[in-house]
Each structure stands twice: as structure tokens, then as C-alpha cells.
Nucleic acid binder design. Sequence first.
RNA 1: UGGGAUGUAGCUCAACUGGCAGAGCGACGGACUCUGACUCCGUAGGUUGUAGGUUCGACCCCUACCAUCCCAGCCA
Length: 565
Amino acid sequence: MSELETKSPGNFIRQIIDGDLKAGKHDGRVHTRFPPEPNGYLHIGHAKSICLNFGVARDYQSGKCNLRFDDTNPHKENIEYVDAIIDDVKWLGFDWQDRLFYASDYFQQLHDYALELIKAGKAYVCDLTAEEVRDYRGTLTEPGKASPYSNRTVEENLDLFRRMKAGEYEDGTRVLRARIDMASPNMNMRDPTLYRIRHGVIHHQTGEAWCIYPMYDFTHPISDALEGITHSLCTLEFEDHRPLYDWVLNNISIASHPQQIEFSRLNLQYTVVSKRKLTQLVDEGHVSGWGDPRMPTLAGLRRRGYTSSSIREFCDRIGVTKAENSVEMGILEACIREDLDRNAPRAMAVLDPLKVVIENFPEGETQQLEAPNHPKDEGMGKRTIAFTRELYIDRADFREQASRKYKRLVTDGEVRLRNAYVIKCNQVINGPDGEIVELRCSYDAETLGANPQGRKVRGVIHWVSAPEGIPAEIRLYDRLFGHPTPDGDKGVRSFLEHLNPDSFKVAGNAVVEPGLAQAEPGANYQFEREGYFCLDQQDSKATRLVFNRTVTLRDSWQKIDRQKG
RNA sequence: UGGGAUGUAGCUCAACUGGCAGAGCGACGGACUCUGACUCCGUAGGUUGUAGGUUCGACCCCUACCAUCCCAGCCA
């Protein structure tokens, strides 16, 4: 039953690889890499890339996938992110074996290749300020003009670059640039920056060994080549960078030449999948952190109760193409529901308790009833639940009067208590404000595991024993944004305006069945008729159980209510 | 008004590379049910962005147009 051994569906990238294999390219090897920058937590969009890269490696004979941190900008990067990313990729179910790398592992080699370019007259040290560089670059419709420093001699460039490295110059005073074509219609080819100076930052891997740091466009192709990557998969915005990727490899003495292939990033409705925006949500305190259960981060989804296999399944279902996309949240939800319906044990929890007194059940007595942990999987075993004279049902499961569509308890009506007896509501007790505070009911002792004689009971509701049940806090999460594309709405100043104020609610007076005291942190349950929940890994304590709602059950009554009421 | 890409069902993707346009999710209707869940059965939904062209035959090839996305960081 290991999903990891199941092949992912085909896509255009796998077709390219198939073709390459048939043509005998790359000595018949397939080697990919997942190259995160450790400047934030991984999100569901990264999961798409991880599943693609590691999935390809898994599905091809002797395929390999490296985990490589693209850590060339110490300003934004952080060891905390490195650790979190490692955890997340592992959790997602993938293994890079002994191939954990850092672009910073190659700083010396990168530097030496830069020297090669300088010696070949293909790179130069430029003294222009950042603004001047921008001016010289031209615009989308006008060509740029050559930097006044682009004609320095090789010797001068070598000397200047050596001194850059030696720390003789301040940040921003000089850069190393490739000499390509200032008139190229592709902006990336207008003498792109290769190295910049960064003093006073401590790199999480290399410490203070370097004060010059290579740019992505220089680092990435070389790192790929050094690792023997065959197919370098990245997102669409790097399409324009491919000529530069190839230029770098074609102009240095490196034999290997991986093939860059671009695919479209994931967009998920009712959330944002952009590290910048997620960082903003965290920094400005709109969420409790990167692992907030409402975040589309892997850490957030995990805490919310999503399983890694459901996320892998999601990635298989959405596919890989080059088309812009906007994936409905329903697909992700369908994946977790499918997983949890099959695998999560059932339990009962009352979120908004309303007291019920079974008048014809003896006071002080507890009857242990038996209930299956899963309605369709006997292998999951049984549990006992306590039935007592006083119990709780959910306030929403009672109405003084209702139409025939309402299949729950009404005054003078009957309803089945799940896994227990049929009860009848005889009397409604109101509080001083007219609020319903208690229901006086009677139970039919003949109805345990049997239908009542001569009459039909229209509904089944869940319940928990009042004296035996355990108080719990149940956190109800909903979509973080109230708009399908919060970052795509031009009618609003900031995507933050679409934050859903109801994305987090707490059912603080919930009561759960006694057996849940033994729940393991992170364990998934279906609370019958409510949804899927997991025991919170961080905040739940033996003295105060905390559950997170992962997702509700599919809800066909909502629309019925909408239609009728 | 430069360059690069992308348009197939509501959404995400298929279509053996020129041979009767399908699937998953969703929607709608029904059956079943001690979860308004699950499961099962059924229905709707397409001028394949548009207009031409090539061909016995075009989602696929050609031309033009339209729409959308990306690119002017010493970010990745």
C-alpha cells in the first residue's frame, strides 16, 4: 500500500525525458534536483515541484534527485529555514539519500569559473552604481548601451575581481558582469550581474569566508552541471533565463550540460502561494506563524491534519503543464477527504453542547456501548463509549419545529443517537432569556442495534456522555481568504483586504468521547457528521485536549438549506 | 508599440504525435444508509481562443488576429 511506489501520471516533461532516453542522451541517466532557497518555509507550490522532481527520479530506473539549497543570498537566508525545509521534504515522503548539497559548497569552483570567463574576456568588473546599471540596461523596447567599464583589460578585471574578493571594496561599489549583448531583446542577456559584494553578513554555511556572492543565473547552471543533473526543472518565469543558463555552460570549461525545462507554478484558490506574501502574513502577525494551520505551507497543512500522501495525490491530480492555472481548493479537499475517509477512525465530538436528560434512564448508571471505529473496515476494531442519563448533543441538532427535510431532533420527535438508542424529546427547558438550556427525553431500550417496531426514525445524530465525556477545545479553520484569487484582485489595495475574518474560530466548550483521552498528537479522526480533525501537536495537553479541524465532511445539506430552509 | 510563453467542459489535465474530443474534481438528479458522510447509478456541460488556409480528414500543420502571463534586482 505504499503510495510512493505508485507511478505518477505522465506529463510533457516525462515525455521529454522518455525521448532523451530513447535518443541516448545523458548516458541514459535521469537526475533531477529540488533547489529551494532557504528564505522561507515550503508551501504547496513547492510540493508540486518536489513531487515532480523526486517523482521523476522514483519512476525512472536508477533515477536520482538531489536536495540542494540555493543559498547564494545570505541576506535573506537563514538556518531555521534550512532545517524546516529538510523536515518538510522528509515529511512529504522523499529521500535524497546522501545527496544533500548547498550551492555554497561550490563557491570556490564558482569563483574559479568566473576567473575563466574573465580570462576569456567574457566577464568584467563594472563600477556603475545600481541605478546607473539600470539606466544603461535600456528598456523593454529600447536597447541598452555598453557600460563604460566593459572594455577593461583582462589583467585589470582579474585584479579588480581579486580585490573584490579580498574585501577591498564596499557593498554596491562594483559587480562582476558577463559581457554578452546590451542590445539583446532578452533583458537577461544585457550583461547580467554575476557577482556582488556583501560585507557583514554571516552565511549560515560559509560564515565569513566570502564577501562576494554569486548570482542565481551564474550559480544555478554550474551547480546543476557539477552534480550531473540531467534535467533541471524550474518554473515558467525562468524561461527567459534559459539562454543565459546555456550561455554560462557554453562559455566555461565544464563538460556536463543539463537541460532546463520550465513548467507553470501552482496557483491555489482562496490562498496565496508566494513566499513574499506568506512572509508578509507571518511578519505582520496575520497568522500565528509559518505553521499556522491556515497557511498553505507544508508545516501548516501538516498541523492542520493533512497527510503527506494526500498532498502527493493532489500533486498527481493537478498535473504538470506550462499553462497558467488556478486550482480549486476542492481538489485538495477531495484528496484529504478520500484519504481520511478510508484511514481515519471515527469518534464522536459535540462542538456546541446542549444538555439532554434521558428521564427513563437510571441516575448514576453508566452503560458501556460498543461502536465500530470504521463503518466499512472491521479491521480497525471497536471501541466502547459510555451511555448515561445525562448527555450532550449539538445545539444545531435540535429545533423546536422544522420541515420534514430536517432529519434531526424536534419537539415530540424521535431521533437515533449514533451507536446507541432512539430517543424522543418530551420537553424543552428554557432559560430566563428564552434560550433552550436542556431537553427532557426518553429512550427506547429496544432500539440498541435494532430498529423500533412499527415506526421510522428519520435521523441519526451524534452525542457524548455528559459525566464521562472530556471537555476539549476544537479549532475550526476555514479558508484564509474570502476571494478565490486574493493576489489577483486589482480592485483592492492589498491582498490582505481579502483576509477571511472567519478563518479561525474556536469551539471552546466542546466535549469529546472518553476514548479520545488516549489520542496521539497529530492523529487524525473523523468526528462523525462534523468532519476530520487531528489532535494538535503543539497545544494539546492531557489536561486540555485541542483538536484542529482539517476539513469538514462534504456537505450536501448546505445547498438544501439554501434552497428550502 | 521589444522579447519569451500559454489558450481543450465550471476548475485541473488527457487525446497513441493528422483518424469518432475523454478523465478527475465540481454541478445536477436518483438509489442506499444507524454519519445530510461513504458507496453506487444516471444527467448536463465543448464551434478545442477567433478567422482563414493545407488535407479525404486538423485540438494537432501553416498564416493572421485576439486574450492572458512573464522579463528592465547588485532577488531566486
